[in-house]
């Protein structure tokens, strides 16, 4: 087994939060006595990530994704458990570690707003002690990949959200980290900018071999970038394995979409072939058990004959799979 870049064991983070009920009486009482409650943001998760992997870290809001990333990057001290990233204990925040990793958060800026990004890059060059030649080469590469030519000389506050995110990426990667934690890197961006950022991350991983752990609410990000996903919910690990297997394990059905010729829809009942989940103007969507899908498809083709205009067999949409994972009380599944 190769040396894992990220090695997490039974990692936990408990936050103590203050609670009070609404209303004047409760407010006055809270001045004297506060009710505190422990919230397990991360409740003992274990996983490893090998060098060069791009892993999707999935979970609904409040699942513990960002808290985990903050612990792995060194921002937060865990309540219990262990983690090593590149052999370092992250929360010790040794310089040698910080120089090899980056945490990029889609909704946060690390650049100085009032000055052009090019000047912030210079500051980062000195902070990370990047030699001049390496700095020029990295910046040229990032400028090329992210199409930054026109952006780096404008004050950051004059950039659009998408432009700023590209510049943030460059700032976060100017020291050529070998591990990148990306937290919602495409949040709030339009579709075309999302696609560009995805392409960039994939290309960056290919060129540098950097290990990437990525959270996103956009399944397209995950599908485009990650062969492996880790799913957590309420601080616990639900699934760790190939993305392709996630659908098979968590949603053991296929979707057959049947399109009928004009006029045929009204007289054709397809309920006998599977569970009809949608029927609209000659287009019927059926949900069938995964292992009977080929047989049902063949029967449909055979039985419908020339009433059939088109038929397709698909995996359920990834959003649907994930939704099933989160809404069902699944136990930990490891592929």
């Amino acid at each position: 087994m190769t040396e894992a870049v990220v090695d997490v064991r039974e990692l936990r983070k408990t936050f103590r939060v203050t609670e009070r009920e609404e209303g004047l009486a409760a407010t006055l009482r809270s001045f004297v006595k506060r009710h505190r409650k422990d919230v397990n943001a991360v409740a003992g998760i274990t996983f490893r990530i090998e060098p060069g992997e791009v892993v999707g870290f999935l979970g609904p809001n409040g699942a513990g994704k960002t808290t985990t990333l903050k612990m792995l990057s060194g921002l937060l001290h865990p309540s219990a458990g262990e983690a090593r990233v590149l052999e370092f204990v992250p929360w010790r925040r040794e310089s040698a570690y910080l120089k090899k990793m980056t945490l990029l958060m889609g909704n946060r800026s690390q650049l100085v707003w009032d000055i052009p990004a090019a000047d912030s890059f210079r500051v980062l060059q000195e902070i990370y002690r990047v030699p001049d030649e390496q700095f020029r080469a990295t910046l040229a590469e990032l400028t090329d990949l992210l199409e930054l030519q026109d952006l780096v000389h404008k004050p950051v506050r004059n950039l659009s959200l998408g432009e700023r995110m590209k510049v943030e990426f460059a700032a976060g990667l100017i020291h050529s980290p070998s591990v990148a934690f990306l937290d919602e890197p495409t949040i709030g961006l339009d579709v075309s900018m999302q696609v560009r950022i995805r392409r960039f991350v994939a290309e960056y991983n290919r060129r540098t071999g950097a290990t990437i752990l990525l959270t996103s609410h956009y399944m397209d990000d995950v599908v485009a970038l990650c062969k492996r996903v880790i799913v957590i919910h309420r601080g616990r690990l639900l699934y760790d394995g190939p993305l392709a297997d996630l659908a098979e394990r968590m949603a053991p059905y296929k979707v057959i979409v049947v399109t009928l010729h004009n006029g045929a829809a009204a007289t054709t009942d397809l309920a006998g072939y599977g569970n009809v989940v949608a029927a609209d103007e000659g287009r019927v969507t059926l949900r069938v058990d995964r292992h009977v899908a080929p047989e049902r498809t063949a029967r449909l083709v055979n039985d419908l004959g020339d009433r059939l205009a088109d038929i397709s067999v698909e995996d359920p949409a990834m959003e649907e799979v994930i939704d099933r994972v989160f809404t069902s009380e699944q136990t930990t599944v490891s592929a």
Binding site: G74, L75, R93, S95
Partner: peptide, 12 residues
Amino acid sequence: QGRLSPKLLRPL
């Protein structure tokens, strides 16, 4: 505002 976080993650 959480603006301290990026600073804490730099080797300075």
